[in-house]
Amino acid sequence: MGDKTTTPPNEMSFLDHLEELRWHLIRSTLAIVIIGSVAFLMKDFIFDTIIFGPKKMDFPTYRLFCEIATFLGFDSAFCADKLPFTIQSRLMSGQFSAHIWTSIWAGFIVGFPYVLYEVWKFISPGLYEKERKNSRGFILVASFLFFLGVLFGYYVVAPLSINFLGTYQVSSEVTNEFDLASYISTIRTSVIACGILFELPIVIYFLTKVGLVTPEIMKKYRKIALVIVLILSAVITPPDVTSQIIVAIPVLILYQVSIYISKRVLKNEAKSARKAADNAKTAKAKAEKVKKDVKPN
C-alpha cells in the first residue's frame, strides 16, 4: 500500500481557519454584549455623567479654557452659564434605540483590550517565534494608545465640537434644538475616531515589519501626511482653525514617534541579521576546524 499524505498537526486548512475565526468573533461579540449589558444597567451614569457631561459648562475642559481666557483677558464662550441648545428625541423609539446603541459602543470601548486579544490569538500562530517575542507587549501598548485617544476625543474634541456647533447661529431667529441621535453621534465619532487615530504607531510598526514603510518614505512624504492629518482633523472637529490645530498637534507628534519606531524596527532587524551572519561564520569556522583536526585512519 502507498503511504498516505497527512497534514501536519500545526497546519490548518482554509475551512479550519474560518472556523477558528468564527469562534474568535463569537467570543469578542459575547464580551461586548456582556459589558454592554452592564452599561445598559448603568443608564444614569452613562447618560447623565458621561454622554451629557460635555453639555454642562462645569465640564473640566470648559473650566480650563475659561481660566485660560480669563488669564489672557479675553471674553470666551467657555465662560457662559450654559450652552444655548436643547436636546430632543422626535421618534417614538428614539430614546430606547439610543440607550441600546450607546450601551453597545460602551461595550466595545471598554472591551477593546479583549477584542484585541482575540485578534492577536488568531494571527499570532502565523508568526515566527521571534516575531511573537518582539510583539509581546502589543496588546498592552495598543490598548493604552486606544484609551489615550478615547480620552483625548472625549475631553478635547467632543467638547470643542459641541461648544462650537451648539453656540453657532446663522440668525437669532433660529434656535438650536438637536436630536438625541445627532448629539450622541458627535460624541461617538469624536471618541472612536481619535481612538483609532492614536493607533498610528502600531500600524507603522507592522507596516515596517512587512517592508511597506521605511523612515525615509515617511520623511519624504511628511508634507503630504501633514495635509492628510489636517483633513482628518477637519472631518472630526468643527470647522474652526483652533480646534483643527488642537487635534492635529497630537497626531503630528504620533507621526514623529512612528518615524522613530520605524527606525528602531529596521535597526533591530539589521542587528539581528548581523548576529545571524556572525553565528553562521562562527559555525562554519568550527566545522572547518573539526575537519582539519580529524585525521584519516
Rank of each mutant, 00 (worst) to 15 (best):
N163Q: 15
N163K: 08
F164R: 04
F164C: 03
L165V: 11
L165D: 12
G166W: 09
T167F: 05
Y168F: 15
Y168V: 05
V170W: 13
V170H: 15
S172D: 15
E173T: 13
V174E: 13
T175I: 14
T175D: 13
N176Q: 13
N176P: 04
E177W: 10
E177Y: 12
F178T: 08
F178C: 02
D179W: 05
L180T: 06
L180E: 06
L180P: 03
A181Y: 09
S182Y: 14
I184V: 14
S185R: 12
S185Q: 14
T186V: 15
I187L: 15
R188G: 12
R188H: 11
S190H: 03
V191L: 11
V191M: 07
V191R: 02
I192T: 02
I192A: 02
A193P: 09
A193I: 08
A193Y: 12
C194M: 12
C194S: 14
I196M: 06
L197G: 04
L197D: 08
L197K: 04
L197N: 12
L200Y: 12
L200P: 08
P201T: 00
V203T: 12
V203E: 01
V203P: 00
V203K: 01
V203R: 01
I204H: 00
I204T: 08
Y205D: 02
F206S: 00
L207H: 02
T208Y: 00
T208D: 06
K209D: 00
K209Y: 00
K209T: 01
V210A: 07
V210Q: 06
G211S: 03
L212P: 00
L212Y: 08
T214N: 07
P215D: 07
E216F: 08
I217L: 14
M218D: 00
M218S: 01
K219W: 09
K219P: 01
Y221T: 04
Y221H: 09
R222N: 05
I224E: 09
I224Q: 13
I224G: 03
A225E: 11
A225I: 08
A225R: 04
A225V: 06
V227R: 08
V227W: 09
V227L: 15
V227H: 10
V227Y: 11
V229G: 01
L230C: 11
I231T: 10
L232D: 05
S233C: 06
S233P: 07
A234Y: 11
V235F: 11
V235H: 08
I236K: 01
I236R: 02
T237Y: 10
T237W: 12
T237L: 08
T237G: 04
P238H: 13
P238G: 10
T242G: 07
T242A: 14
T242N: 06
S243G: 10
S243R: 07
